[in-house]
Structures are given as structure tokens and as C-alpha cells.
């Protein structure tokens, strides 16, 4: 998401900078020197804007598209994304310590994989919740969920996170259809 935003921001910034610079130059050339359009066909736009009415189909469609693009962009920006890192309890006011979220997810995945019977695992963490998805080949997972929970909770508690996230564990058996314990 951050990469998408960065690419979008770069493209928009370039487009905005180029367009506004051309507009400024066009105004100076047209107004102060009485010159014809340089890059932007503003004389054609001017004539067209006097011919088109607000209820013309093309005008309405354009405004609808602009509004829809705005709504999509707003939804994209308001979507809550996981933090890059999670703060740890402060032990020294001059030292702000954080743990990288991606490395924490990997450590929790490895902790889940150490549990006997777990054949695969992946972890997703948010600001206040960590979810461990573990896979097993066993038909009856038994107490696997509790053991994965204990293993992951051990890693989390050893870190002393500032806001301890809630831990959730799902165990899926590959032999059955995605059964949860």
C-alpha cells in the first residue's frame, strides 16, 4: 500500500508540476505578449466551453468519473494499514525502541513451525491483533492450537511490547476442508 501511494504521489506530483508550470507560461505568453497557445490548446478549450452545456452527456460523465476517482482515492487512503514497526516498553526516556513488524511476523511463524505437528504457518499482525494461521497434516489437530498459542505467546511476551496485541491462533487441517479447532 505504501508503495502504491508512493508511485501515485510521484506520478501526481510530476503531472501537477508540469501542468501548472505550462499554465503559468501560457498565461504569461497569452496575456502579456498576445501570443498564440504554446502547448495547451486553450483557445479551443475556451470555444468548446462556451458550446457545451452543463447537462451535456460528456460533461456529466466527466464529473461522475472525477467524483468516483475521488471516492476510490479517499477509500484507499482511509484504509487502515498495519504499522511498519511496533513500539516496545520504554526503559530509558532517551531511547525509543521499536521492533520491525515484518521480522516479528517471521519470528512468530518460525515459533509456530517449531511445534510438533505444524506443517506450515503464516502470521499477520495489526496494531492490536496478531493472528497465527497454522497448517497441519493431522486429521485430528488435538491440542495443537493451544501449543501453537503457547509458543507464539512466549515470543510476544518476551518482547515487552508497549501495547500487547491480542493473539489469535487458527489451525487448519489440510486433510479436511479447512477445519478450525
Amino acid at each position: 500500500m505504501r508503495l502504491v501511494n508512493r508511485l501515485l504521489a510521484t506520478l501526481l506530483a510530476v503531472a501537477l508540476a508540469v501542468f501548472s508550470a505550462i499554465v503559468a507560461v501560457e498565461i504569461i505568453l497569452g496575456y502579456y505578449f498576445g501570443r498564440d497557445p504554446w502547448v495547451l490548446p486553450w483557445d479551443r478549450w475556451y470555444r468548446r466551453s462556451r458550446e457545451l452545456t452543463w447537462s451535456d452527456r460528456s460533461v456529466v460523465i466527466t464529473f461522475v468519473l472525477v467524483g468516483v476517482a475521488g471516492i476510490l482515492l479517499l477509500v484507499l487512503q482511509l484504509w487502515r494499514r498495519p504499522p511498519r514497526s511496533l513500539p516496545l516498553e520504554a526503559t530509558n526516556p532517551a531511547v525509543h525502541t521499536e521492533i520491525n513488524r515484518h521480522s516479528l511476523e517471521q519470528a512468530l511463524t518460525r515459533a509456530a513451525l517449531t511445534v510438533d505437528g505444524v506443517s506450515g504457518a503464516h502470521v499477520r499482525s495489526r496494531r492490536s491483533r496478531v493472528t497465527v494461521h497454522a497448517m497441519t497434516q493431522r486429521r485430528q489437530p488435538g491440542d495443537l492450537r493451544d501449543r501453537v498459542n503457547t509458543s507464539a505467546a512466549g515470543v510476544l511476551s518476551s518482547l515487552r511490547l508497549q501495547n500487547q496485541p491480542r493473539l489469535a491462533v487458527d489451525v487448519h487441517s489440510r486433510r479436511t476442508s479447512r477445519g478450525e479447532v
Partner: peptide, 28 residues
């Protein structure tokens, strides 16, 4: 990182686009 700046500017542009869209459709 420019993450916060990007988010703020993009929200501003999104709100402006929605306002323009609603205004245009409203006039039509």
C-alpha cells in the same frame, strides 16, 4: 518517509475531486 505527507495530500486531492464531481453533477 513521505507516507504521512502522501496520505494527507492524497486525501486533500480526493476530497477536492469528490467536491468537483458532486458540484458538476449537481449543476447538471
Amino acid at each position: 518517509d513521505p507516507d504521512r505527507l502522501n496520505r494527507a495530500v492524497l486525501i486533500l486531492l480526493a476530497v477536492a475531486a469528490i467536491a468537483v464531481g458532486v458540484w458538476g453533477v449537481g449543476r447538471a
